[in-house]
Computed example of a mutant assay.
Amino acid sequence: MAGDTKKLQPIIVKKIKKGGHAAHGGAWKIAYADFVTAMMAFFLLMWLLGSTSNGDKAGIADYFNQPLRVALMGGDGAGDATSIVKGGGQDLSRQAGQVKRGDTPSRSTLAKTQLQQLRQEQLRAEVAMLTDLKEKVESAINLEKLAPFRSQILMDMTREGLRIQIVDSQNRPMFDSGSARVKPYMLELLRALGGVLATVPNYITIEGHTDAVPLGGDRSAYTNWELSADRANASRRELILGGLPAGQVLRVQGLADSIPLEKDAPTAPINRRISLIVMNQDAAARFFRPELPDEGSAPEAPAAAAAAPAKAGP
């Protein structure tokens, strides 16, 4: 019977059905991103605190402790900074992180500074050009035909520009005595200077000077004033014949003996001279607009050589 019982027992077969894993959601990615963002913000906060001075930290603390009082009374951390990062703000050249708005240069101040810098560059360029012109005049004088007149030419920089003075000599006067007629040997010098002066665009002033010996009597109709003006105008004509554009001559004037070169010897021949002034931009601007400020003072003329015995007559 026992064997029969075993035969009658049913055989149960368990079949396990394998199924796929349930799909996981993406919620963990959002949590991880929040964690990374929080850590980045934390380290950024630590870096900012480390780069902030103690005074700024105290100002920030005061602002959060008593924001109304700080906002009313002012102070660090009360909105007077453009950046708390060193070198930040509107001016990247600053070493301090915070920059007060009142310390930031305005547009008008920046524009004025830029104009001053541009003005300085223009002045340097003009001085360089006039210095180059002076060297050209010296080269022209050193030519074989003009070398004898080297001692009669004086050049210096004045407030108005480059001044070229052709002075008289006891043995080699520029004009006939009491006349505006140019000596033949001076024609070549004036025309050579006219060609050199034509190489620059600057305006030219021509001044005539005489010595203190009076021409004619007190009631004479032709005095040193008329003579100096006529000699300056005669020099202008020779400069133009040498190549100087007529429109480049801005002013021709006779000054008689009012500005002697040798003050201690007003009758010395060296006082009889023709001054050619290559005007700079400021001098030309003051001529066209006399209301412009006249800055500086004209330097004194260079000391002249020992004066020769005075010649009778201007």
Rank of each mutant, 00 (worst) to 15 (best):
M186S: 13
E160M: 07
E226A: 14
R236P: 05
H209Q: 07
R181P: 00
Q152H: 14
L162M: 10
L227Y: 05
T199N: 03
G242Q: 01
N224D: 11
G242K: 03
L241A: 13
L261W: 15
G243K: 03
D218I: 11
A221Y: 12
N202E: 03
D176V: 08
S151T: 11
D168M: 05
Y222F: 15
E207I: 12
V167R: 14
D211A: 02
A234C: 02
R219T: 14
V200E: 05
E160I: 03
V196R: 01
A232G: 11
A268T: 10
L227A: 02
G195N: 05
E226D: 13
Y222S: 07
Q253C: 09
R150L: 10
Q248P: 04
N171S: 10
E188Y: 01
G216P: 03
D156S: 15
P184W: 06
A180V: 02
S179I: 04
V196D: 01
K263C: 08
G161K: 05
I206T: 06
G216S: 02
W225S: 12
I166F: 15
A232N: 06
Q253W: 14
I206Y: 10
G195M: 01
L187I: 15
S179A: 08
D176Y: 13
Y185T: 09
L227C: 05
G161A: 04
P214Y: 01
R191E: 11
Q253P: 04
Q170M: 08
R163S: 13
Y203A: 00
Q248I: 00
G254I: 09
M174I: 13
L189Q: 03
L261M: 11
L162V: 08
T199W: 05
G194L: 02
L255M: 14
N224Y: 11
W225A: 06
E207K: 14
V249Y: 07
Q248R: 07
